[in-house]
């Protein structure tokens, strides 16, 4: 495993050569990711640092390798069912619903959301914003093209959330896949339909900055399995930023095993799987 001295050098190199600052990432997972890059590329820590300083493309690629981009269509179906039956209906009568996918990775979460909104008749009034630290995954998210064979579970998840009703087992919704995406088994591709791909506003954004990249307050912020890579201090900073940019009674949705531990907790009311922003008295 890479030494703590070498980790410090890697952190310093990122800070010097770019605006990326990983110093408040979780130590062990950051060390492990860097270690993996060194092993995969068969390079020493010193050479890695040298390349970060001299080669911008290499640096960007390394950011991509350090950050974790695991995602699925309707990942964690229970969360999507809660969203469908408990959360989204609350916004049914509002003229707009503004949603921010923070750390959107390759976009599966955004497409899941848009599919669900469309089935609930809320697609047109929704405004979808999506950010990630990583330009390459944003480009992937914009194209909405995914491997088919590797991602067969997407269809199982889709069935669970879109076709079945856990509150009424006899009820089945007939939602054809083609309504939202085309499957080409020969080319091994799932391609999201155009009307979905065109909708979201994408922006490159690093949550470490602690600011909202849009001039909007949001009704829903999804940030699932992103801040697990941050230390408690940075987690709290990011959650506070979310609290400041959520409308009252707006929802923050974290990953299944994430929770708000620090002072930011006081801004929220915990509901099953969600955090609802409380009405609070302004301190200013």
């Amino acid at each position: 495993m890479i030494s703590n001295d070498d980790i410090a050098k890697v952190l310093a190199a990122f800070k010097t050569a770019s605006t990326y600052d990983f110093s408040d990432y979780c130590d062990r997972s950051f060390a492990r990711r860097v270690d993996k890059i060194l092993t995969d590329n068969k390079i020493s820590a010193d050479l890695f640092v040298k390349q970060l300083m001299s080669d911008r493309d290499f640096l960007e690629k390394s950011v991509r390798d350090i950050t974790v981009n695991t995602t699925e269509l309707f990942r964690d179906p229970q969360m999507w069912l809660n969203l469908r039956y408990q959360v989204l209906p609350r916004f049914k009568d509002k003229p707009t619903i503004k949603i921010w996918h923070a750390g959107c990775s390759s976009g599966q979460e955004i497409y899941s959301m848009m599919i669900l909104l469309n089935e609930l008749g809320m697609f047109d009034k929704a405004q979808i914003f999506a950010t990630d630290i990583n330009t390459a995954v944003i480009e992937a998210a914009q194209t909405g093209t995914y491997k088919y064979m590797f991602n067969l579970n997407y269809l199982d998840n889709f069935d669970k959330v879109m076709r079945e009703n856990p509150y009424n087992f006899e009820q089945k919704y007939d939602v054809p896949y083609e309504k939202y995406f085309d499957i080409d088994k020969r080319k091994d591709v799932i391609q999201m339909n155009d009307f979905l791909c065109k909708k979201p506003v994408f922006r490159k954004h690093d949550l470490v900055s602690g600011c909202n990249p849009f001039y909007h307050q949001f009704d829903l912020i999804l940030c699932r399995n992103v801040i697990i890579y941050f230390n408690p201090k940075l987690q709290n900073k990011v959650i506070n930023m979310f609290a400041n940019n959520l409308s009252v009674n707006g929802f923050l949705i974290l990953g299944a095993s994430e929770s708000i531990l620090g002072s930011a907790n006081s801004s929220f009311e915990r509901m099953v799987g969600f955090y609802r922003k409380k009405q609070t008295i302004s301190m200013f």
């Binding site: 997972s29 974790v68 399995n225």
Partner: peptide
């Protein structure tokens, strides 16, 4: 270190 759990989706 510091006896906390951390989770990851790697």
């Amino acid at each position: 270190l510091g006896n906390r759990f951390s989770l990851s989706t790697e």
